[in-house]
Simulated assay, not measured.
Amino acid sequence: MFSLLSQLRAVWLPVAAVSVLGLTMAANPALAQGASAPEVQAVAQDWLRDATAAAQPAGATALRMEVKLGNLDSRLKLAPCGNVEPYLPPGARLWGRTRVGLRCVDGMSRWNVSLPVTVNAYGNAWVIKGQVAAGSALTEDDVVEAEVNWAEENSPVVRDKALWVGQIATRALMTGQTLRQGMVRPAQVFQAGAQVRVVAQGAGFQVSAEGQALSAGVVGQVARVRMENGRVSSGTVLDTKTVKIDL
């Protein structure tokens, strides 16, 4: 259904699409005498069942998949075909509202059709239980765990508490919204000009010294620091007072 969540430390995850273009179905005997719309839809349904079962998001608990397959025109008659190959059209993914293609790869007349598909993926996620103002730090009291449709939006779901507790709401969050990437950002913990502790770490040793921040500090992001000897270095912000430099 999706590869979907390669970033997803969050799930997210969020989201790259799984490559299922290589998945094909064996020849369908029913199509050897001519392919009706219901027969073609049955091939697509079988393929979708296997593809979505094999494409759970990385790092997430199993999701309950629900596939809704649209219809071809019931009057449609396709030429006989020894092998019908389902596939994802370029740019499509098995997530939310999408399309699946079916093409004849073994027949006197090659044909290619597509069907509308809706893939829902239900599982537990964090849901906003009260309004959170933009710029506010998110706390555990602001959310509740509930089952939601992960595929309702393209943005990956944020499951890991470490990725949202104490982070800042990028916009006003409303009751019932599923917590997703882009809704929060790391908090700024010091301003440029602040005195910070710089921890330099290498193989088998660690030293620390004082320095002055030359840029604002955001946990998990890089900040520039001027050391007491005047040298300027860059390191990762750990907390309100500490920048780590790997040697």
Rank of each mutant, 00 (worst) to 15 (best):
P116F: 05
L69G: 11
W47E: 04
G211Y: 04
Q45T: 15
R171P: 02
K129C: 07
A125L: 02
L69N: 10
D106R: 14
D160C: 00
V158I: 14
G220K: 12
V207T: 14
G235I: 06
E228S: 14
L179S: 08
G96T: 05
L72Y: 05
E228P: 12
G34L: 07
Q45W: 13
A162W: 06
A203I: 15
N112P: 00
W47N: 03
R185A: 09
L13W: 04
R171G: 06
E228V: 10
E140T: 11
P89D: 03
G193S: 02
V198K: 05
L94K: 08
V158F: 01
G202F: 04
T61M: 12
L179A: 04
P90F: 05
L138Q: 03
L88K: 06
L69C: 10
L21N: 15
L76P: 01
T236A: 03
A35F: 08
G70K: 04
V243A: 02
V237E: 00
F2R: 14
L78V: 08
A121T: 13
Q221V: 01
Q7F: 11
T178C: 04
D73Q: 03
P29I: 08
Q181R: 12
A172C: 02
G202Q: 05
K68L: 11
N229H: 01
R171A: 12
A223W: 03
E140Y: 02
D46G: 12
A125C: 01
G166M: 05
R185G: 00
T236W: 07
Q201N: 06
A44W: 04
A134I: 01
A223V: 13
K77M: 14
R159T: 05
A17C: 06
V119G: 09
N83A: 14
T242E: 00
R9L: 11
P80H: 03
G123E: 07
M183Q: 04
V119R: 06
S6V: 11
V105Y: 02
L76Q: 07
A133V: 04
G101N: 06
G130C: 02
I245V: 15
M227K: 03
K241H: 12
T118S: 14
K241Q: 13
T52D: 13
V119Q: 04
C104R: 11
S208W: 03
V148E: 02
R49H: 14
Q195H: 12
Q33L: 11
V243I: 13
L102T: 04
Q188W: 00
V132I: 14
F190V: 08
S208V: 05
N28L: 10
Q33A: 15
A10C: 01
V232S: 10
Q167T: 15
P90C: 03
T236Y: 05
R171I: 04
M65N: 08
V165S: 02
G211F: 04
W111A: 00
K244W: 07
L13Q: 05
V198T: 07
T139P: 08
F190A: 10
M1H: 06
G123Y: 07
L21R: 15
A187Y: 01
R103L: 00
G182D: 02
S114G: 10
P156F: 00
P86W: 05
N154S: 14
L69S: 09
V184A: 08
G204M: 10
V189P: 01
R9M: 08
P89W: 00
V144H: 05
G107A: 08
W126H: 06
A30Q: 11
T139N: 09
L102W: 03
A134K: 12
Q221A: 03
W150R: 09
